[in-house]
Amino acid sequence: MERRNFLRAAVVGGTAVTLGFSVTRESIAYPAQTGTSPYGALQAADANGIQLPAGFTSRVIARSTKTVGNTGYTWHSAPDGGACFADGAGWIYVSNSEMSSGGGGVSAVKFDADGNVTGAYRILAGTTRNCAGGPTPWNTWLSCEETDFGYTWETDPRGINPAVRRDAMGQFKHEAAACDPDRKVIYQTEDQPDGCFYRFIPTTWGDLSAGGTLQVLVENGSALSWVNVPDPDGNPTATRKQVSGAKLFNGGEGAFYRSGTCYFTTKGDNRVWAYDAVNNQLHIAYDDNLTSNPPLTGVDNITGAAVGDLYVAEDGGNMEVCIITPDDVVAPFLRINGQSGSEIAGVAFNPAGNRLYFSSQRGTTGTSSGGITYEVTGPFRTTL
């Protein structure tokens, strides 16, 4: 029996499969199993068509091609990856635009301490298919181009400093970036069926203008290592094909780093991976083939709450954002109705952790101009 089918049969038969992972609070039950959400069942859809747990509410923050509140700024089409940044007593939410042919970029929405929208503006323009990315500890947003020779752009959420292209981070079909301040590296995913998992080592942590070294994860039997990519510009040989033995991943998507582990998703096999950077080990945190009645399919963007929960957005599936708890239970947290032609992206918490932002990239129309960006407020848990 093929190994994945064997493991699925074991799970369905009621036996937990740990795959020999290290025994820590966040990995003892890998891979996550279908269970009951800590927030309970989803309630009937609200006025925005969103099903939420009891006590939670949603509101629309912005709509593509429409003015954001009273700001006078027109929200971009095809909203994708995003993140929040502290801004005085308030915060800023940035959102990529996954438009082609130089029509992409990044926009930002500014909130005051009470969550009121006080401004909106562009922080990157003229780029192509800005899909995901990641925040840095020095409060910039890395926006990644999902094209064969795409770049990573470093942007200022405040819109004061101009965006800068960071060539040393490589030219490839970028998806997401996740900063690891403990090892002073930035992990990157690649959206290809035979994509790789990279890390960028800046020459100066906190200053990407000084360049750095691009490496790729290599697998030799059960051993993992990081090897320099000879030509980060990917021309004439693609970065993923330059190093023998590079570990291949089926469609890299979102990435999120926390406490020694980089979690990232691959859409081709519906997996959430956990790269244990402390012990240089790779685990499967979730696989829809390794649990009964899997609630999470079409894995995409990923973020985390301070309490330890992961939130994974679906590209398709049931248009859900699913939660994976530190006890390795996976369950729906919210569901968007009436938007089956869309995908969910840009999941991010505000600094206080009591508001969750995300976008439906194509909304009810199924077109890039129909994107909708939402906020969910409610009793997000602060303790386990």
Score class of each variant (00 low, 15 high):
residue 70 N to P: 04
residue 294 P to C: 07
residue 19 L to A: 03
residue 198 Y to D: 08
residue 281 Q to C: 13
residue 334 L to C: 15
residue 193 P to V: 00
residue 6 F to E: 07
residue 38 P to D: 15
residue 81 G to Y: 08
residue 100 S to M: 08
residue 315 D to E: 14
residue 373 T to F: 12
residue 320 E to D: 05
residue 43 Q to T: 06
residue 73 Y to L: 00
residue 75 W to R: 11
residue 126 G to A: 05
residue 191 D to F: 03
residue 317 G to V: 04
residue 95 S to L: 09
residue 1 M to P: 13
residue 220 N to V: 04
residue 364 T to E: 13
residue 248 L to R: 15
residue 267 K to M: 07
residue 351 P to F: 06
residue 195 G to R: 11
residue 362 R to F: 02
residue 238 A to Y: 10
residue 278 V to P: 00
residue 256 F to D: 00
residue 260 G to R: 12
residue 293 N to K: 11
residue 309 D to A: 14
residue 197 F to K: 10
residue 23 V to E: 10
residue 20 G to T: 05
residue 32 A to K: 01
residue 229 V to A: 02
residue 294 P to V: 10
residue 371 G to I: 01
residue 351 P to S: 03
residue 297 T to I: 05
residue 82 G to D: 02
residue 22 S to P: 03
residue 223 A to L: 11
residue 299 V to A: 13
residue 315 D to Y: 10
residue 206 G to E: 05
residue 6 F to S: 05
residue 338 G to P: 03
residue 344 I to K: 01
residue 317 G to N: 14
residue 258 R to T: 08
residue 9 A to R: 10
residue 132 A to S: 13
residue 375 E to C: 13
residue 145 E to V: 00
residue 363 G to L: 05
residue 344 I to L: 15
residue 143 S to E: 10
residue 36 T to C: 02
residue 116 N to K: 11
residue 177 A to D: 06
residue 51 Q to Y: 08
residue 312 V to P: 12
residue 135 P to R: 10
residue 123 I to D: 12
